[in-house]
Write a protein that binds this DNA or RNA. Sequence first.
DNA 1: AGCCTTTGACCAGCG
DNA 2: TCGCTGGTCAAAGGC
Length: 508
Amino acid sequence: MGGFNDHVTMAGDWMPPSPSTRSFFSSMLGDDVRSFSDLTSDNKGGTLFPPASENNMAGNAEEKNNGGAGADDDQSTNPGSSSEQRTNLRKGLSERMAARAGFSAPRLDTERIRPADLSQSSGMQSPYLTIPPGLSPTTLLDSPVFLSNTLVHPSPTTGKFPFSSGGNGRSSIFMMEGHDKRKDDFFDNINTSSFAFKPAAESSPSLFLGAGASSTLPRQSFPGMDISVQPGNSYMPQSVEPRKELSPPLNEQHDVDAEQRVSGDANVGNAPSEDGYNWRKYGQKQVKGSEYPRSYYKCTNQNCPVKKKVERSHEGHITEIIYKGAHNHPKPPPSRRSAVGSSNALNEMQLDIAEQGGPAADDDPALTTMKKGTSTGASYWRHDNFEVTSSAAMGPEYGNNSSTVQVQGGAQFDSGEQVDRSSTFSNDEDDERGTHGSVSIDYDGEEDESESKRRKVEAYATEVSGATRAIREPRVVVQTTSEVDILDDGYRWRKYGQKVVKGNPNPR
DNA sequence: AGCCTTTGACCAGCG
DNA sequence: TCGCTGGTCAAAGGC
């Protein structure tokens, strides 16, 4: 879609822009970019990506090497229409990856950007942000900081959550609809460089594991996960499952890859229940374009339409999680399986969060902020590897209320609650190629958003993620149904701007 | 006994 | 219309 160009520009623009998410974003980008560029230059031949993910990457290594050619393609293609994008998607991962690499590199003014982040993120090398096992996306989302805006960095107030800041920043970043390439690049880079939210990190050690070499900063990022919410019904997903990647405690973060895969994921082998909900796996399939098999889960709660797709690496690391629909019921009490997840670090993390973050997300204004993001269709939210995407808001039918729930950006994945809408932090800007498409699609908010569209979107996401996934890590996508509802989330919103975004006929 | 996972087959959408 | 692909179904088996 049209978005592509924008994105490109975006890259350049990152720095300047707007205060909010974007700025945050930009800062992040800086790191990302930097790292990315560095990588590219250094690695030229191939390894654009950070070593950390080797395990995941392993499969990709070849692809990476091939990258050069692919890059060109990508660039050329990116701009193209959605169809083109798809085409691209179909290309080998290697090409795509390469393309991405190539793509972003040139455009970004890494040098400018770099500094800021570096300082912050210097520590974060690890590509993945790990979320400790037990930590649910929900939790993450809930975290006040997270919600808070990008500005937050280390929130003085909320503070603690490095995560949050990351979240925010990321969210903004992530939100980028397009996120694709850029995302990928970003994320990849980010992971490596990290977008760190400096500050707070300390407080919640448990949260980030990540990767990063640097234990400190990294925490904030969530490298490995992408979360996306898809519209279907709307109840948002409550959580992302941390699984493998998630977890390594801060200390462990150093060796992201190894650790994450190996130990990190306590959850790994298990069904994704870490988010607090009970899921039943009803299928598994190898999806084209994806290195790893995709597992299909349904929420076991009666009448709950929520489904999720999880892709895991051989090691069991989650490379991508896509939520579809929102839960129409509260989170079941932790028991059994959930308990399992809870046992992990994630749980701890959550606890930490609660303690630290203290403020309930709901209450937290920041949260509110996040929600704002939602306006449009899809949003992406990402922490290093952690990414959340939401498309339009959920249908009122489902979630209604939910006071708390938000997806994405602001969203809380709170489990019990339904997510009302997605947020968009999007970034419209971001999107690189396809993403846009997806975004826009959701964006339309058509309730039905045809499945097909949805599919496409998903597919796109999948692919993108797939390509990068290995590299990047898990991703959670939450789709919602319509954007319209977004404003009806029970919160009060103040419009602070309107802008026409390329690729989107409607002013944002 | 209940719940969940596995896995091959089937179905539907899309190009 | 055909083939491909993703998503879902449902039987079988395990815990």
